[in-house]
Simulated scan of single mutants.
Amino acid sequence: MSIIVITAIASLLIAGVFLAALVWSIKDGQYEDDYAPPNRILFDENNTKNK
């Protein structure tokens, strides 16, 4: 029975680490530009300037 308590605490600690990493990446601005990356692939300006 004590192994269940240990694994529950360990899983909550791991989940807390991932939650902290998510909050840190959101505050850092990682998810701000959600429109440009798909369009960057379709409209590559470097290839059109070289031709």
Rank of each mutant, 00 (worst) to 15 (best):
K51D: 15
A21G: 08
S25T: 05
M1D: 02
F18H: 08
I26K: 09
A36E: 02
K27S: 08
D28L: 09
S11A: 15
D33R: 12
V5H: 07
L42M: 12
V23H: 06
T7Q: 07
S2N: 00
G16R: 02
N39S: 08
L13E: 13
N50M: 10
P38E: 03
T7H: 10
K27P: 05
E32L: 12
L22V: 15
A15Y: 07
F43L: 13
S25R: 11
V23N: 08
A21H: 01
G16L: 08
V17N: 05
L12Y: 05
D44W: 05
P37T: 02
V23P: 10
Q30D: 03
N50I: 14
D44G: 12
A36T: 01
F43K: 13
L13C: 11
V23C: 00
L22W: 11
I6H: 00
N50S: 14
F43D: 15
K49Q: 14
K51V: 12
K49R: 15
A36G: 02
I4Q: 08
Y31Q: 02
A21F: 06
L13H: 04
V17H: 01
I14F: 13
I26M: 01
L19Y: 05
D33L: 04
I4H: 11
K27V: 03
G29M: 05
I14N: 06
A20D: 04
D34L: 12
S2R: 07
K51C: 07
Y31W: 14
P38G: 07
Y31A: 03
N46A: 11
D44T: 08
A21R: 04
I3P: 02
I26S: 01
N46K: 15
M1F: 00
K51R: 15
Q30K: 14
A20T: 00
G16H: 03
P38F: 05
D34Y: 09
K27Y: 09
M1Y: 00
S11D: 07
M1Q: 00
W24H: 10
G29H: 08
L42P: 00
F18A: 15
S11Y: 00
Y31I: 05
W24V: 11
V5Y: 14
I4Y: 02
N47S: 07
D44S: 05
T7L: 09
Y35P: 07
F43Q: 10
L13V: 13
Y35D: 13
S25C: 04
Y35S: 04
Q30H: 02
N39P: 02
K27G: 10
L19H: 04
V5N: 15
Y31N: 06
A36K: 05
V17E: 10
A36D: 10
A15I: 03
L42G: 08
V17R: 00
A36H: 04
D44Q: 15
K51S: 08
E45D: 11
I26A: 06
I14V: 14
A21E: 06
V5W: 12
I9G: 00
I14G: 06
I3R: 01
A10V: 02
S25W: 02
K49D: 11
E32S: 13
S25H: 04
F18C: 09
K49F: 03
D28Q: 13
W24N: 14
S25Y: 12
G29R: 04
K51E: 13
K51Y: 14
V23W: 09
V17T: 10
Q30E: 00
